[in-house]
Write a protein that binds this DNA or RNA. Structure first.
Lengths: 334, 334
DNA sequence: ATGAAAGCGCTAACAC
DNA sequence: GTGTTAGCGCTTTCAT
């Protein structure tokens, strides 16, 4: 049987008070006499009454929900990010409404959905945002914070890991160990982060006098790195070191070298990764990598978002955090 | 500047039609004349109008949102599950409202939140549900589907992987390979799934004539398994085979054996896992395990939930799916 | 096919 | 401190 929901009017009637009395009891910081409060709470519990958030949203024009946009990609790389965001947002009394975005065509539909749900703000971990889409957020006065995405020609709120510093640290280690020839395994070309990491590596190698470092591409996944590397090594000489856009691919590289080319890391070749995922420190890999300061990033993202919800006209803010270098055992000693 | 949201009245006024005409245009399956529809759509686009889902929810009493309850644990083990659930639910026009539940004390607050948000249904991947909590869902007439949790003394909608069959298959392989002494590394005792897997293994070993198999405990994580195993092996003889409650711990076991005890898997000892996570097939591990039929599970969970939303008084349903045995290379040949 | 009017369950402003 | 009233932006009858 579909029982009708209990409303504040029902409670008011039974408790013998007005509806607004009930409403006040359930809102923090409103003054109600002890007697009324107790009576209301008692009858509410008895009747199983809970305030209807939907009705509240309609009138306060605050949904209490924040959209988090993931690509399934991003989710795979950092499952903890979502938990952390959820935790931080809960501290500010916000709920996470989840959206995924895997290819650019879905973007319009996604945005429609976001406007429709009247979310208080958006945190975007997915790839496909251009400055045109970002303008729409401004137009709909919906605050948005980008997580590890840099969108050129737009001044959006952003938190990100300092890829530049991290990658240079890694390359410095390789360079100091007297490596001469390099191979870069980059993430997919439609990922901003992958492109950024690749470009930093290319340019910095050039600065150090290493010219024309070849680049091959994977999809950030274990298998894609193995396949790309296998294909490459069949036709090209082996490099001294392989720079991978993320740890998952670095692990794939180490396994591929070991299984199909009898090359041991770090004895015969060096490999570096990026991200600092759990598996990077497993005994068989011990990758030298840069760990993203995930908790700082998530906290900053939420903090900025909350500020913008409070104060929408404030100027955009970018917070950059430096990752921590983890010296594993994947670089050959010179 | 905080611009006011455009409402259906605004559009109606500009387009020179009634508010209900606008409403009808934005609802599927309502008959509007072509002329009216075009006029409304045009002015709506021009004005940046989107229907307000909150107002719609209030009157239709359908929020279009489904709560998904995760533990951070579950999220780490199966990051894909959430993406899949989200995808499947989106096909039914439902959005995911995310909740996390890590310890039992948070349950009450969580439930308050769920009632408040008037979600259409709930999918629970987290551990701490007892039959008392489940009754609350019935009382609030909120359909709930449990994912891989069996709650005794309650007939809740459930989808789960056939742990029984899977674990017996794994143990059969070990037994046929002439292993005599076993060690079980179980997940935490407050996890239903961990307890179930442990009991199945204990009982089945007994059936096969293997008595008093010792059990040690981890938290499903890599490090916890290493620590527990190290402590155990210092004081006890080494078993022929180690049965792990999940792949992450199996990986930890393999690494611990290799690094600190010079025991190679599968040459010197056998290890089996459960879940079929990506890393279980990496070259250094190649664990013999059972892969959970994740896509089937998520689809079934969503299907059942949608049926219950349509038809709340239908009887509870349990769908059990058999995982697929993956024969890796972690069992010593006899 | 279209419009007028009622009302979903709450909050907010006001009077007492 | 408490009750009254007027909406929030829609959907849903019910006339026309």
């Amino acid at each position: 049987m579909k029982q009708k929901r209990v409303t504040s009017y029902d409670v008011a009637r039974v408790a013998g008070v007005s509806q607004s009395a009930v409403s006040r009891v359930f809102r923090p910081g409103f003054s109600v006499s002890k007697k009324t409060r107790e009576k209301v709470i008692a009858t509410a519990n008895e009747m199983g009454y809970r305030p209807n958030a939907i009705a509240r949203m309609l009138i306060t024009k605050q949904s209490g929900m924040v959209a988090v946009i993931l690509s399934s990609q991003a989710n795979l790389n950092y499952p903890e990010v979502l938990s952390e965001l959820n935790r931080e947002l809960a501290l500010h009394n916000k709920r996470v409404l989840l959206f995924t975005l895997d290819n650019a065509e879905e973007l319009d539909e996604l945005l429609e959905n976001i406007w429709t749900f009247q979310v208080d703000g958006v945190i975007a971990l997915a790839a496909h945002f251009d400055s045109k889409s970002l303008n729409l957020f401004a137009k709909h006065s919906t605050p948005i914070v980008l997580y590890n995405r840099h969108v050129p020609e737009s001044n959006a709120n952003t938190v990100c890991c300092n890829h530049d510093k991290g990658i240079k640290q890694l390359i410095d280690l390789l360079h100091e160990a007297n490596h001469k020839s390099y191979l870069i395994i980059s993430g997919p070309t439609d990922s901003d982060v992958a492109n950024e990491r690749r470009e930093i590596a290319e340019n910095y190698l050039q600065t150090l006098g290493v010219k024309d470092t070849p680049v091959i591409y994977g999809d950030y996944g274990y298998k894609s790195a193995r396949d790309a590397l296998k294909k490459w090594l069949k036709k090209h000489p082996k490099p001294d070191a392989i720079i991978c856009s993320n740890d998952a691919m670095a692990i794939g590289v180490i396994d591929e070298l070991k299984e199909n080319f009898c090359i041991k890391v770090p004895d015969d070749m060096s490999v570096v990764g990026f991200d600092g995922i759990n598996a990077s420190s497993w005994y068989n890999y011990q990758i030298t990598t840069v760990q993203q300061p995930m908790k700082q990033l998530t906290k900053a993202a939420v903090d900025i978002l909350m500020e913008r919800i409070e104060n929408p006209q404030a100027a955009a803010e970018v917070r950059v955090f430096t990752g921590s270098l983890i010296e594993g055992n994947s670089i050959k000693k010179s």
